[in-house]
Design a protein around this nucleic acid. Sequence first.
DNA 1: TGCATACCGGACAAATTTGTCCTTTAATTT
DNA 2: AAATTAAAGGACAAATTTGTCCGGTATGCA
Lengths: 146, 146
Amino acid sequence: MFSKACEYGIRASIYIGQQSASGRRVGLKDIAAEIGSPEAFTAKVLQQLVRAQLVTSVKGPAGGFELTPEQLRTVTLREIVVAIDGGAMLQGCALGLPQCSAKQPCPMHYQFLPIRDQLNELLRTHTIGELASKVHEGLGFLKQFS
Amino acid sequence: MFSKACEYGIRASIYIGQQSASGRRVGLKDIAAEIGSPEAFTAKVLQQLVRAQLVTSVKGPAGGFELTPEQLRTVTLREIVVAIDGGAMLQGCALGLPQCSAKQPCPMHYQFLPIRDQLNELLRTHTIGELASKVHEGLGFLKQFS
DNA sequence: TGCATACCGGACAAATTTGTCCTTTAATTT
DNA sequence: AAATTAAAGGACAAATTTGTCCGGTATGCA
């Protein structure tokens, strides 16, 4: 569905959000450990999110990553996905036609439309803050424990 | 959504199906030209589908690819996708958790479930023969014309 | 000012996906 | 039987994604 980079980006954002909601700033090492992702690669992904202003970073001692209250409230899953994977999966043709549309639809065009619309809606209506709360309450996990 | 290989596989199958419904067997060159895909790469994909017995091939002069009446009737989009991309996209966790389930769900688990179910249902309920008819009637395209 | 911390950025490496080329194998036709 | 046709299969190459490493840069603190 999403690229690895995107999966890490989403999980990282939610974890950062969860900690930010509790007033804690978190470092890369902590993040990677908590979401079970490769550290250096996760750093690259976070850089993209910081550049896209979906996540905030602070250098130096006691620095790290955080979500501002506004970011917690407004940043959606969709923005994270678009920042990392681009809009292809959210708009492109399921069968790979470069200009698939009502004008020259692929044979699955109208069947896929509602599903893609739902996916877009799903990503658009869930903020990182909301998902962070869910994790905080133990109703969702960012890593599997045994 | 799907890999390039899978996109080519689906489009090729539908084109083969369309021609088979008209009693014509088609060669690789023809297929690649009609669906706008790289010839050699499409050959590899078709080999996979033949091995999975979703498409039939005949060597030698006047040989090529075809779908038997039974294949036209019974092979679904889902079987093509699984044969090429495997079941990951149809079953795996959207956030990449290796064992995501009701036991330890990712924060989007229950939101993604209905969408994934619909996708599975969509792929499961559309046969290649049905899609081939649609293309045959000019209601769907496998390649864009300008 | 100097030092320690932690993100930033570039280069590089491994793995996977995508794509090509060429020889072999099987089937049909002459 | 020989020649021709077309898929099968293996080796290889390019591109993309995933992942690592290390020096540079900004920040806070003594």
